[in-house]
Design a binder for these strands. Structure first.
Lengths: 198, 198
DNA sequence: CCCGCTCGTGAACCACGGTTAACATCCCGG
DNA sequence: CCGGGATGTTAACCGTGGTTCACGAGCGGG
């Protein structure tokens, strides 16, 4: 694990074999589910044999773990950054969160799919870590929603946040049939209407 | 398969062992994913050993297939029936569809979860059949949405329908923390706002 | 030039889990 | 009372797939 500390920077560099594997695996996992995809499949997708994977990852589970951790981190970091940059207006904060989530979902349909389907097939410790990050991201939304809906309690706003996630993340199930611009606009409008509904 | 034709009636009768298995399996599949739960697990959940399952189902896949087919059928039948009984007002039809979907999701969180996560791990023929039923159900929504949004084309309304499904089906991810009545009301309000957003 | 590290390969190992086989048991109809 | 179907159990079979092993090939630096 000597590269664990540099992983966050390394992926920004040239797409190393390691990154190719992660990307290909995300695609395959999204299509068939992580359990249905073999290491040989992942290897074949990047032009190597199955066992070659173990030069880059400790195990198949470690791959999935890193994948999910990265997604959760990107969402949390991106969400907090956007809110911080949006000023004090709650509605402005909400809108920036929505467009962020919509863009993320449209840019990474595979990651979104894996994110909330294969969390279950993860080692307890990794799953807990992912859930921690998820929870913090949800809290970012809950805070903003709390300012938009001063009369609602946190539990209600949590349900609101999850509902908006479900709405926006529906993209992978209906993607491709509509040009991206229109999809983004439609989802953003629906999400805002849903999030602000009494 | 001598009981195939009476299956729809039989499950309404006393919960036979067969029905117990289906229900327990749905629960387990929802929690861990169909691939992660073994035949022994399902058996244990109803108080028998693993191989006993094969007295009631041809295979584990057959279990999943019947499960998904039933869900899809119930949604399609329920949806068409509700719309037919709602009169001519498009908004009334939309509202009845929304409350139907919300009630279904709140009543069967496990089925909803399995429904759109384990469709991939199904034999091609069964998967195609399920997808056919799903498509017809979506079309029920698209028809209604088409009358609510006369200016939108079918592709847009399809995306709208999927987004509303995602919103309503987010229930399993946030269920339990809020009393059911409040959850139902909140989801219905959000769904209607989202579905009618321009 | 050659050590040693990186990245791969093909073969083998081994555990897990779906499935089948070979018996019990219970219970009902004749 | 008896035979047979429904329902289970335990043991065994066996394909699949994750993982390890022993072994190259390329390659950059001392």
């Amino acid at each position: 694990m000597t590269e664990a500390n540099t992983a966050l920077h390394a992926d920004a560099a040239r797409p190393s074999r390691r990154e190719q594997i992660l990307q290909a695996a995300a695609q395959l996992f999204a299509e068939r589910g992580s359990r249905a995809v073999g290491v040989d499949d992942v290897g074949a997708a990047v032009g190597v044999t199955g066992p070659a994977i173990y030069r880059h990852f400790a195990s198949k589970d470690a791959m999935l773990a890193e994948m999910l951790l990265r997604i959760s981190e990107r969402l949390l970091e991106g969400g907090t950054a956007r809110v911080a940059a949006a000023g004090d207006d709650p509605m402005a904060q909400l809108r920036t969160l929505i467009t962020f989530q919509v863009d993320f979902a449209l840019d990474n349909p595979a990651l979104i799919t894996v994110h909330d389907r294969d969390l279950g097939s993860l080692a307890d410790e990794d799953a807990a870590q992912v859930r921690r990050l998820q929870r913090r991201y949800v809290e970012v939304w809950v805070d903003v929603l709390g300012r938009v809906h001063p009369a609602s309690d946190a539990a209600t706003n949590r349900a609101r946040a999850h509902a908006v996630f479900g709405l926006v993340n529906s993209t992978p199930h209906s993607a491709g049939r509509l040009p991206r611009r229109r999809t983004a606009a439609l989802l953003a409008a629906m999400a805002e209407a849903a999030a602000t509904a009494t």
